[in-house]
Simulated assay, not measured.
Amino acid sequence: MTVEPHPAENRLYTTWVTSRVEAVDHAVTDEDMAAGIADGKGIYRAVCGARVVAALLEEPPHTRCLRCQTYVWARATLRDMDLDNPGPRRSRPGLLALLGWLRG
C-alpha cells in the first residue's frame, strides 16, 4: 500500500521542539512556531495542545509526545479526513430513551 502525499495546500509542516519543562519532544507547526517567535517568550503551541517552553538547542532530543506523533501520522496517512473538524459526535441513547424502548 502506498501513501500519496497531501496536496501542498493541505500539507502539515512541523518541527519537533524539546521541552525544557518535561522530557518530551512536541510537534509544533510552522505557523505556531512563527507566532511563538513573534511573541518573544519562547513558548509554542504543540499540535497536541500543550504549551511548550523550548529547551536550549544543545539539549539532546527526548522521546516524542505520543499525542503529537499520532496527530502527525494521522495527518500524513488519513488525507481524506478533516482532522480539524471531525463533525458532530454521535452519542448513544440515554437512559430515558432506553426506558422508553423497554416499555414498548
Score class of each variant (00 low, 15 high):
residue 2 T to H: 02
residue 2 T to E: 06
residue 3 V to P: 01
residue 4 E to T: 08
residue 6 H to Q: 04
residue 7 P to K: 07
residue 7 P to G: 04
residue 8 A to S: 00
residue 8 A to L: 03
residue 9 E to A: 11
residue 10 N to Q: 03
residue 11 R to Y: 13
residue 11 R to V: 13
residue 11 R to G: 11
residue 13 Y to F: 05
residue 14 T to W: 04
residue 16 W to N: 08
residue 16 W to E: 03
residue 16 W to S: 08
residue 17 V to I: 02
residue 17 V to H: 04
residue 17 V to R: 06
residue 17 V to K: 02
residue 20 R to Y: 08
residue 20 R to E: 09
residue 20 R to S: 07
residue 20 R to M: 10
residue 21 V to P: 15
residue 23 A to Y: 12
residue 23 A to C: 12
residue 23 A to S: 12
residue 24 V to E: 02
residue 24 V to L: 03
residue 24 V to R: 01
residue 25 D to K: 02
residue 25 D to E: 00
residue 26 H to W: 01
residue 26 H to S: 01
residue 26 H to T: 00
residue 27 A to E: 05
residue 28 V to K: 02
residue 28 V to F: 04
residue 29 T to I: 11
residue 29 T to C: 10
residue 29 T to N: 09
residue 30 D to N: 03
residue 31 E to C: 02
residue 32 D to L: 06
residue 33 M to T: 05
residue 34 A to N: 14
residue 34 A to C: 13
residue 35 A to P: 02
residue 36 G to C: 10
residue 36 G to H: 03
residue 36 G to D: 05
residue 36 G to R: 02
residue 37 I to P: 12
residue 38 A to E: 12
residue 38 A to P: 12
residue 40 G to E: 12
residue 40 G to D: 12
residue 41 K to Q: 11
residue 42 G to W: 10
residue 42 G to D: 11
residue 43 I to H: 13
residue 44 Y to A: 05
residue 45 R to P: 04
residue 46 A to F: 10
residue 47 V to G: 04
residue 47 V to C: 04
residue 48 C to N: 09
residue 49 G to D: 06
residue 49 G to A: 08
residue 49 G to S: 10
residue 50 A to K: 15
residue 50 A to V: 15
residue 50 A to F: 15
residue 51 R to H: 10
residue 51 R to G: 09
residue 52 V to Y: 05
residue 52 V to A: 11
residue 53 V to I: 09
residue 53 V to A: 04
residue 55 A to K: 11
residue 55 A to S: 15
residue 56 L to R: 13
residue 57 L to V: 07
residue 58 E to A: 14
residue 58 E to K: 14
residue 59 E to H: 10
residue 60 P to I: 05
residue 60 P to C: 00
residue 60 P to H: 02
residue 61 P to S: 00
residue 62 H to G: 01
residue 64 R to E: 01
residue 65 C to I: 07
residue 65 C to H: 05
residue 65 C to R: 03
residue 66 L to R: 15
residue 66 L to V: 15
residue 67 R to Q: 15
residue 68 C to F: 06
residue 68 C to Y: 03
residue 69 Q to L: 11
residue 70 T to R: 07
residue 70 T to C: 02
residue 71 Y to P: 03
residue 71 Y to K: 14
residue 71 Y to E: 14
residue 72 V to D: 04
residue 76 A to Y: 09
residue 76 A to P: 09
residue 76 A to I: 06
residue 76 A to C: 15
residue 76 A to R: 13
residue 78 L to P: 13
residue 79 R to G: 09
residue 80 D to L: 12
residue 81 M to P: 08
residue 82 D to A: 09
residue 82 D to H: 08
residue 83 L to P: 03
residue 84 D to W: 04
residue 86 P to N: 08
residue 86 P to L: 11
residue 87 G to N: 05
residue 87 G to V: 02
residue 88 P to L: 00
residue 89 R to T: 07
residue 89 R to I: 10
residue 90 R to S: 04
residue 91 S to E: 07
residue 91 S to V: 12
residue 92 R to Q: 00
residue 93 P to Y: 00
residue 94 G to T: 05
residue 94 G to C: 04
residue 96 L to Q: 04
residue 96 L to E: 07
residue 97 A to C: 11
residue 98 L to P: 07
residue 98 L to N: 10
residue 99 L to I: 01
residue 99 L to K: 04
residue 101 W to N: 11
residue 101 W to G: 11
residue 103 R to Q: 00
residue 103 R to T: 01
residue 103 R to L: 03
residue 104 G to K: 09
